[in-house]
Write a protein that binds this DNA or RNA. Structure first.
Lengths: 159, 159
DNA sequence: TTCGCTGCAAAGCTTTTGCAGTGGT
DNA sequence: ACCACTGCAAAAGCTTTGCAGCGAA
């Protein structure tokens, strides 16, 4: 659970600038908490159409490097980004059949993590923990092919 | 730590066929333990050039659905696949600066997982756990831009 | 002046899919 | 005849990047 100021500081230690674009992108990302990259691109561009797609992706990479966002690949559609501050950390349990995703917290893991990280002399920035399985319902039914959510559809914002 | 037969059974419960192509793909995947999708495509095609890329990807999706492989996106280059049987499970610790990846085991996590999964009535198939941070060295140096490994280069196998 | 940052557009890479044909794990 | 599966090749989808110009320190 990091605060905005911390993220700013982290970015500074990397020697990067907090440009207007980056501030806008971070503000919008925080508003979402969960989002898909192209979603954020579209959103940012409705506010300032001059912001380029590349800038958003470059900023997301930066934010990931400082541990401000996590990137989740749930296998269906585009990877999902999640901001790590402004909300307690949680992990994910996903049904590989129907795609249901359960978010849960497990404080005991957090403690174990610190231990492991210390063991290797690392400074922890972020983490992702995903469990894949079958939900109660899908354990009983065995469809030939899993249901597949539609692809992400994002129409280009007219600049 | 699943065995090959278990994977076969899991596939059967899905009502899918264990075709020659799938057996070959699984055998080669097991030989690698860690691999990138296109690597596997190339490898399989050197043995049987008639196997299509699509078949390999479709098989990987199937294997993931039954928990036989995990897909790791380490942000640099192509996602990395890992077979979950024939080797004890391990998790990953990665330095976001230099890209170093440490694999480690933590049996206490495995136990906690069972507990969580049971709580939600799920049947666990696989899981991934990644910690991101800065290694000892990178905590001291702050390069403007992180070092980036080269892109994956895979030349097409001449059929 | 330096150099980090950006917009733009194109390229790049990975993965998916439509379709017609095949075969029976 | 059913239908899961496949090869093929193109399409789709997501992300990255080369480059020239801009602007803050």
């Amino acid at each position: 659970m990091k605060r905005f100021v911390e993220v700013e500081q982290l970015l500074r230690t990397k020697g990067v600038r907090l440009t207007g674009q980056r501030q806008l992108i971070v503000r919008r990302a925080v508003a979402y908490l969960h989002f898909v990259a192209e979603e954020l691109v579209r959103d940012v561009r409705t506010i300032d159409p001059s912001v380029a797609r590349g800038t958003v992706y470059r900023t997301l990479a930066l934010l990931h490097e400082v541990g401000a966002v996590e990137k989740h690949d749930f296998r269906y559609g585009a990877p999902n980004y999640e901001v790590t501050f402004a909300k307690a950390h949680h992990d994910h349990l996903m049904c590989v059949q129907c795609g249901e995703i359960i978010e849960f917290q497990e404080p005991r893991w957090e403690r174990l993590q610190e231990e492991v990280v210390k063991r290797y002399g690392y400074q922890l920035l972020s983490h992702t923990h995903k469990l894949y399985g079958l939900c109660r319902t899908c354990q009983r039914i065995h469809p030939k092919r899993p249901l597949k959510p539609p692809r992400l559809h994002v129409e280009e914002v007219v600049a």
